[in-house]
Design a protein around this nucleic acid. Structure first.
Lengths: 205, 205
DNA sequence: GTCTATAATTTGATAGAC
DNA sequence: GTCTATCAAATTATAGAC
């Protein structure tokens, strides 16, 4: 069991506050003053600990990306049979997002609004999962005739779409359908159980 | 055939430039100077035509939302049989996004970062589609035993996810897989043809 | 390490000539 | 309608006392 270092140190308070503000308003929408207020400290402290807004943001963004991307390795690098792998991925990834519902949108927003920074970041520190193995596995199953003929890339997109998109569309969906927080959680719980089955039904012969 | 009023009037040049900048950088990330430059005019002109940044943004955002949301009525209000309706929706919606690949992310970002403005907007001018009819249709088919047992809401989410998400994840996907622009277009073309079939295969008995 | 006060910069908005 | 020049406000960043 790893100690997660949730001290109430000033640095940790800043990170927590910055996460909250950045994740909701993005880099350009966030205000240093707002972050300081949320942390219950002074604006000057932010600079003392993180030099400037840019660096504070980078820290938060890296942490977010680290939570999301390496998880993709579950689907890409394990040795499970295809159906179990799909099952595993959907459940594991949804668990991450249940704990951090705003992360996907945060990372995607940054990726769109500032692709340069994003790419630079990714090249370095991230052990960026390559899906080749998983795609090859799908191709193999298609050739063996175990599953229906489908493009591996399309299947991968289907799996990821159905897993991530609900968290991105949450506000739209809640407004459209009129779900409250509890109902949305129930919707997600059900989805975690059933979505892999949906995909498998679609490709099973 | 309706005239689309693509004059080269100053107002139209501003709108075009503002669209480009806002859609990529969002409300808070966009700079009035940048928009003026892109329009080939002076910053003061922006205020002359649209009073302030807020109102210019509202104009752009409304146009974007109008392109995306009313389309959902195709799926919700037509009288087609279920499978054809799914087929129709996927193709029609993907056509909209092929023409405007950045719209979905733009609207979603605004929805997340400024939900108040978004909700206010939606209440007024938008003829906001209610999915009740479509959900009831699914429920009916399940009861008749025509399709597998599935929650109507889950099925709706599956259809929408697979249709919209590829455009949102485009940069991530291109980077991960290494697709260039042409390859991505081909991927989308294939998807437009096949995704409805995937969904139908999953629910067909 | 933490604070208050203040500087420096960015940026949205306006005044006024043409 | 369009421009240049300028203002005013917001916001990041720093200096310096404790």
């Amino acid at each position: 069991m790893v100690k997660v270092a949730k001290d109430n140190s000033t640095e940790e308070k800043i990170l927590e506050a910055a996460r909250k503000i950045f994740v909701h308003k993005g880099m350009t929408g966030a205000r240093m003053q707002e972050i300081a207020d949320a942390a219950g400290i002074n604006k000057a402290m932010l600079h003392y600990y993180f030099r400037n807004k840019e660096m504070l943001f980078e820290t938060i963004f890296s942490q977010a990306a680290q939570k999301l991307f390496p998880q993709l390795n579950i689907i890409f690098e394990s040795d499970l049979p295809l159906f179990e792998k799909i099952e595993n991925f959907v459940q594991a990834y949804m668990d991450v997002m249940i704990e951090n519902p705003y992360l996907p949108m945060f990372v995607l927003t940054e990726m769109h609004q500032n692709p340069e920074r994003f790419y630079k970041k990714m090249k370095g520190e991230m052990n960026f999962p390559k899906p080749d193995k998983f795609l090859a596995q799908i191709e193999k199953e298609v050739k063996r005739g175990t599953i229906k003929r489908i493009s591996p890339l399309q299947l991968l997109m289907n799996i990821i779409s159905g897993t991530i998109f609900p968290f991105i569309a949450k506000p739209m969906f809640q407004m459209h359908i009129g779900l409250d927080e509890l109902q949305f959680r129930q919707f997600i719980t059900q989805r975690k159980k059933e979505y892999a089955g949906f995909v498998i039904d679609a490709i099973r012969k």
